[in-house]
Nucleic acid binder design. Sequence first.
DNA 1: AGAGAAAAACTCACTCCGAGAAGAACTGGA
DNA 2: TCCAGTTCTTCTCGGAGTGAGTTTTTCTCT
Lengths: 263, 263
Amino acid sequence: MVDDGMRRDAAEREFLAAYDPHAYAPVAVTVDVVAMTIRAGEPLVLLVRRGASPQQGRWALPGGFVRAEDGPAGPADPDLPDAALRVLAEKTALPTTLHLEQLGTYGARDRDPRMRVFSVAYMLLAPDLPDPEQGRDTAEAAWVPWRDLGHGGTARYEPAFDHTRIIADAVERARAKLEYTSLATAFLPPVFTITDLREVYEAVWGRPLHAANFHRKILAAPGFVRDTGELADRGGAGGGRRPRLYRAGGTAALHPPLLRSAP
Amino acid sequence: MVDDGMRRDAAEREFLAAYDPHAYAPVAVTVDVVAMTIRAGEPLVLLVRRGASPQQGRWALPGGFVRAEDGPAGPADPDLPDAALRVLAEKTALPTTLHLEQLGTYGARDRDPRMRVFSVAYMLLAPDLPDPEQGRDTAEAAWVPWRDLGHGGTARYEPAFDHTRIIADAVERARAKLEYTSLATAFLPPVFTITDLREVYEAVWGRPLHAANFHRKILAAPGFVRDTGELADRGGAGGGRRPRLYRAGGTAALHPPLLRSAP
DNA sequence: AGAGAAAAACTCACTCCGAGAAGAACTGGA
DNA sequence: TCCAGTTCTTCTCGGAGTGAGTTTTTCTCT
């Protein structure tokens, strides 16, 4: 204890060396965003076609370098979520309500041939977003159904780099979190019906649910939804009772959870 | 589609600029490891006393810079988990069985006064580890009980930087994952009893459990544990039936989950 | 042998869940 | 206007799971 400050151990050497950061091998940090939405019962993820050189022309997640300091490109990103929202705003219009959550960081040595790149992946859930035709920064951008991606689909879209795995991680995270959190409301507008909520679960889990039991369980979970006291203007297309309208209740954890049991 | 390769959009500009990586503001990537173990029913986390300058003398998580390329300090870390295990091996002996899991990445602008530092936090669960007296790289290292940390404890150990929050995130992650995965076996040696397993749950959740019901639920969850067919050499200290010995069954997800209900 | 202790099995009331049926409220066409 | 079809909502019922407590089994120590 007495000589703590005098030992030139590894930590200290690292600290001193860091005063000349350029002495280190250069590394870069990027953010990649898995933006998810649901349109007509179909879960979609936003992909952009790469206009630049590695993997040029292939589809990839929207992403970009984190701005570490203020520079000619623009002000620094104060934190990682800011960077994630910035790169996404360059591709599509951001919704007013959204859920942004960090997925994980990928840093294998051979991810990028140019230099060591660490990618922080984010998952963003949002209500039905507009088509990104106004994307002013990318060759092309599109909302792509999950099932058209690499994992067992028609492989019309084969994402570049390790983005297929990142998307798969995001899908599994979303599926799991629907069980024990009220995350599903992030896919819906502020006011919705129980049927809307059930269709989110069915879309994400890819399996039909028993409507009556779902209804019961949602109302039994305290704080999941709040009754607005109002009814929708109309029932379904072919008639039907006018459904009640609800808002998200704000609860994060769900007790009891909504388990997806074996079919 | 025809002129994809000709457009000098932002992605391409980023790509070209990256060929001179030093033109960018330097950033650093570190790993911090929340190593957890349980000793005599007490959950512990490994802290080291910082020997180097920022926050010198304060306790912090074991961590260090990710080695991006081969250099004088040693070979590059092939991937982030390799870096996490390397920095931890510098502080303590690694167990033969362990569970390593990425927690998240922290990159707020003001985390470190020297430069922009992104820290990838890992959580490591292991059976009772030896005391790190042989730590050859650090002024001091110790296994610290959770309750002695900042959050409501006696504050004997007040971790540096944002490490208090990282540890809190790790604790909450561990508590939650015990509910719906077989993660608890990571705290135990290869062969253990149901009582050992229950004591892991009680230590992590900080609450006593009903022994008989716990026993029933563990055996009802398919694949959680496998019966070795053998009994322990002895019962408890003051006598008692010799307990059966089990091994981890290898199941990741638990059906049904073991919910911690309100006390 | 007997007391005490720990593991494991059992009991019981209660809740929760899946599956189906039934009721309520609405649309559109006969 | 009445009826068939549709959708939302509530109800019912058997089976499974849960919390709490009790009992049985098997062991150690005195």
